[in-house]
Design a protein around this nucleic acid. Structure first.
Length: 609
RNA sequence: GCGGGUGUAGCUCAAUUGGAUAGAGCAUCGGUCUACGAAACCGAAGGUUGCAGGUUCAAAUCCUGCCACCCGCGCCA
């Protein structure tokens, strides 16, 4: 017997549907949902209305027939039909007791996926010689959450940092630094970032401006000026091109310099990733340079199968459902990021044999990934060598904005570095924790400063992560530390607090209620148990849809269910010892599920705060 | 111009994928602690779901046409 009541009800109603409508309806989803309101029951079955339509029968009559046919012996009372054909179900208490007892195991009732395939998550996306900023924050913590969730369900997850460590931009930076006689061994990431911006600006100034100027027929002086700038940019690009050729040819000095650029970048990345508590080290690097020897091969694969054609000297892949083509080789023979991404797809599906490839890259690259996925399908890389179908997803997330609703910048107009952002968040968390610890009643009172700092860090980082993961990923959001660390309302600290309070009860009792017989006689106890039993379904739904805010919303509803229980039911002062132990066990189980939920989002759950 | 995204309470967001009276949190107002942790709880107020049609027992959700804002748009990544 499955522990999950939804599963039991689904099976029972599937049989009833077959009995009422015939075998051809065996695949119809009975649409078992939690009751929209507690006083209507525990669950509802919403299948009768749709079925009535298909059978050309009155929905209420179908609902009645289903109720007559369904066998819920030992599971629930006779369901009631309401409204246009809703079927309201109230479970037997014994089933709830069995189910909650069965989920009280180390895995908390979360059932691993069958035949769990490998998953590749393309996340973080660091660029060599560039500061990490809020875009990397999102990619890193969202990717980390996916990894944790899928690992929880038994998948082997490969976190890959598709490092921007190759190509023209890197060559330009190298050239700039060498021209300036920079001491590469002594450089900081800030120096690299400055050099990057300098050459980037020089190389892009400014062909678009020129085109616009010509088309708008501005004065000849202005055009001449822009032409001069533009030819300068062309010079920068072609000079960088020469450097790139040397780099690609394996010039020893250049390679050494290139490696020191990478080392500086990775040191800064490591610092940021450590602050975030994300498991992402050098072993996760598989950047553009990794694929540099694969590109010709990928090109050949497309050419051999006539999947690409020449257009104005470039090689492009065309798709029959859209005008936009994807360039995979430039007219000068060079390859692009599209080619690299295809090489990565091939590697991930054909060698790693991942059955799922997830790209955690901002939403602006939506079109690009649609092209990559469709091209991969043309190439046959949407199945593994074992014949398993590969599922590709691009979870395009929105931008992080400042208070002015524009991409986050400092007062001086510079990009905010990820590290400065996290440093501030941690400091804010620590301030709050220190302040609270001064209260003699606070459980943190008297802790040594190192412990308080560790808790404050969990709180500050947890606040940032929760703010990011608790709403729909595609939306932009305003980065507002005041609200995130507000410790009130729908925040990470609220959930951490709920968890810490539960731990506090267990600590005080010196008993986690292990082995106690559950008693669920109060309505709030029943609601809490129903909330606990949803956990398995929520994890699976999140893994399927890649919508972490489902877990965030669940954690919040669980905390609310616990708070209601806690308000109405004395735990330590329960009337009988059996009831006290039952409630302690319920509290402990809730604490563990809450901790699990927070951990799947990458948020720590301190025992006291 | 073409393509993608977003539009829900004063603000920030949900809505289990077409289900019952659209729900939370901030902010506002009113109640709960010499404490099983008040970083909490209970209550009040707040809505023409951008607009107009359509589909049906049922639409924030689906289809059509508009409006507003954001983001892309061949040889950068």
């Amino acid at each position: 017997m499955p522990a999950d009541p939804v599963q039991c009800l689904t099976e029972a109603f599937t049989k009833a549907i077959v009995a009422v409508a015939g075998q051809e309806y065996a695949e119809t989803d009975p649409a078992i949902r939690p009751a929209s309101k507690p006083d209507l029951g525990d669950f509802q079955c919403n299948v009768a209305m749709g079925l009535g339509k298909r059978l050309a029968r009155a929905p209420r009559e179908v609902a009645g027939a289903l109720v007559d046919a369904v066998d819920l012996d030992g599971l629930a009372d006779t369901p009631e039909v309401a409204g246009p054909g809703f079927i309201n179900i109230r479970l037997d208490k014994s089933i709830l007791l069995d189910a909650v007892t069965m989920m009280d195991t180390p895995d908390l009732g979360v059932v691993p996926d069958e035949d769990a395939g490998d998953v590749v998550i393309d996340m973080c996306g660091v660029n060599v010689a560039k500061q990490m900023h809020v875009g990397h924050l999102r990619s890193t913590i969202i990717g980390d959450a996916f990894a944790r969730i899928l690992e929880r369900l038994g998948h082997v997850v490969h976190r890959e940092n598709h490092l921007g460590d190759w190509g023209l931009p890197i060559a330009m930076v190298l050239r700039e630094l060498r021209n300036n006689g920079a001491d590469l061994a002594a450089l900081t990431l800030t120096d690299l970032d400055t050099a990057y911006r300098t050459v980037q600006a020089a190389a892009t100034a400014d062909s678009r401006g020129l085109e616009a100027a010509v088309s708008k027929q501005v004065g000849p002086h202005h055009i001449a000026e822009l032409e001069a700038q533009n030819s300068g940019a062309a010079e920068v690009r072609s000079a960088a091109g020469e450097t790139l050729v040397l780099l690609q040819a394996g010039d020893a000095g250049l390679i050494a310099d290139w490696q020191s650029l990478i080392a500086v970048t990775l040191a800064a990345m490591s610092e940021a990733v450590d602050m975030l508590g994300v498991d992402m080290g050098p072993e996760n690097n598989r950047g553009e340079s990794f694929y540099r020897d694969h590109l010709q091969d990928v090109m050949g694969w497309f050419q051999d199968r006539n999947l690409c054609c020449e257009d104005e000297g470039a090689m492009v892949v065309r798709f029959d459902n859209r005008d936009r083509a994807m360039i995979i080789r430039k007219s000068d023979g060079g390859f692009l990021y599209a080619t690299t991404d295809l090489a990565a797809v091939r590697c991930r599906t054909q060698e790693t044999k991942a059955t799922r490839c997830i790209y955690v890259v901002d939403a602006r690259q939506h079109d690009h990934f649609q092209d990559v996925f469709d091209a991969a399908a043309l190439a046959g890389w949407n199945t593994t060598p074992d014949g398993d179908v590969v599922q590709f997803s691009h979870t395009g997330f929105g931008s992080v904005l400042g208070g002015d609703r524009k991409p986050l910048k400092t007062r001086g107009g510079k990009n905010v570095t990820l590290i400065s952002l996290l440093t501030e968040a941690i400091e804010r968390g620590r301030e709050e924790v220190r302040t609270r610890s001064k209260d003699p009643h606070a459980p943190t009172h008297g802790l040594d400063p190192e412990e308080l700092d560790a808790i404050g860090r969990s709180v500050g980082i947890g606040a940032v992560k929760y703010a990011d993961l608790s709403n729909d990923l595609v939306r932009d959001y305003v980065f507002d530390l005041d609200r995130m660390v507000a410790f009130e309302g729908d925040t990470g600290p609220y959930l951490q607090y709920a968890h810490a309070r539960i731990r506090s009860i267990i600590r005080k009792a010196g008993d986690d209620g292990a082995g106690a017989t559950f008693q669920i006689d109060q309505p709030v106890e029943r609601q809490l148990v129903l909330a606990l039993l949803r956990w398995n379904g929520v994890v699976h739904a999140t893994a399927e849809t890649l919508e972490p805010h489902r877990i965030a919303a669940y954690a919040r509803s669980l905390a609310e269910a616990f708070n209601a229980f806690y308000q109405a039911c004395p735990v330590l002062k329960a009337d009988t010892d059996d009831l006290r132990r039952s409630r302690l066990r319920l509290a402990d189980l809730t604490g563990r599920v809450l901790c699990d939920a927070l951990n799947l989002l990458g948020i720590e759950a301190p025992d006291r705060m």
